[in-house]
């Protein structure tokens, strides 16, 4: 494997997103949402202004869990199929580059753009709030940013996989939207529905493991378990065994969510 070839593809993808202001737009969206949530998140309770980092992170988690998977899927769905459709895939593959190098270059370049806008967007908010945050709060917030990046990377990996399998861009976009619906909206409902219908007979034991089968849930658990104030607010989180909630373990699960779709994409791309 030649790292230089991966870097060439990755840097093109990254700078494309910088130049067309994609990174800037996404970072601004994150900053705006985070500031609004930090200052007005407690408006329902009749007060305005920044209160606690735990509450802010909890609200941000609920937002990010919808937003980041969507952004990552939109970013990555045409990575390969787009090149194929415009006829430039054959040209790229006629270069002294392997298919794996091309795939990884695409992934790393897009992941860097997503990570950069996530960190810039939420990081700006951390700077604005820094006067009100102690070290512990900053640590939690950094954990939230890191897990947001991982969440984005996991869904980006799924998007790139779809873009290898899809026959054309239209179908790839359809698959991307279906993926978002499934993991973000349907998955938890299905689990809960199964629990309720079977009166907890089926799936109760398995539930924590089934949650790991969804990167969005992994992200939620990663953030909520670290926040004592918030853990009790979440029904699902209370049935989750502490042992499974170790950040390093959840981090590994997230990594698997990044590596496995990419590995499947690479296998398919070589055929």
């Amino acid at each position: 494997m030649e790292i230089a070839q991966i870097a060439t593809i990755a840097s093109k993808e990254f700078w494309d997103r910088i130049r067309n202001r994609w990174v800037l737009a996404v970072a601004l969206v994150f900053t705006a949402f985070a500031l609004v949530i930090a200052y007005f998140g407690a408006a329902q309770q009749g007060s305005v202004g920044f209160r606690s980092i735990d509450i802010t992170i909890a609200s941000l988690v609920s937002l990010v869990i919808y937003l980041i998977p969507l952004i990552a899927l939109v970013l990555g769905f045409d990575a390969i199929v787009g090149e194929r459709e415009r006829g430039s895939l054959d040209l790229l593959l006629s270069m002294p580059i392997t298919r794996l190098e091309l795939l990884l270059g695409k992934y790393f370049g897009l992941a860097a753009a997503l990570a950069f806008s996530t960190i810039a967007g939420f990081g700006l908010v951390a700077i604005v709030l820094s006067a009100k945050l102690d070290l512990n709060a900053l640590f939690h917030y950094a954990g939230f940013m890191l897990s947001s990046v991982l969440l984005g990377c996991a869904f980006l990996s799924l998007a790139v996989m779809l873009s290898v399998f899809a026959a054309d861009r239209t179908r790839a976009s359809g698959l991307a939207i279906a993926t978002w619906f499934f993991f973000v909206l349907v998955f938890d409902l299905l689990l809960l529905g199964t629990l309720v219908v079977t009166g907890g007979q089926w799936g109760g034991e398995l539930l924590p493991y089934l949650l790991l089968a969804n990167p969005a849930d992994v992200f939620r658990i990663l953030n909520i378990f670290s926040l004592d104030d918030v853990r009790v607010l979440y029904g699902l989180a209370t049935v989750f065994p502490r042992a499974l909630a170790a950040p390093w373990l959840l981090g590994l699960v997230m990594l698997a969510w990044i590596v496995v779709p990419l590995a499947i994409a690479s296998w398919r791309f070589r055929k």
Partner: peptide
């Protein structure tokens, strides 16, 4: 050197 048919290069 290769020139594919109907290739669309990068607009940006």
């Amino acid at each position: 050197g290769y020139l594919p048919e109907n290739v669309v290069l990068y607009d940006n």
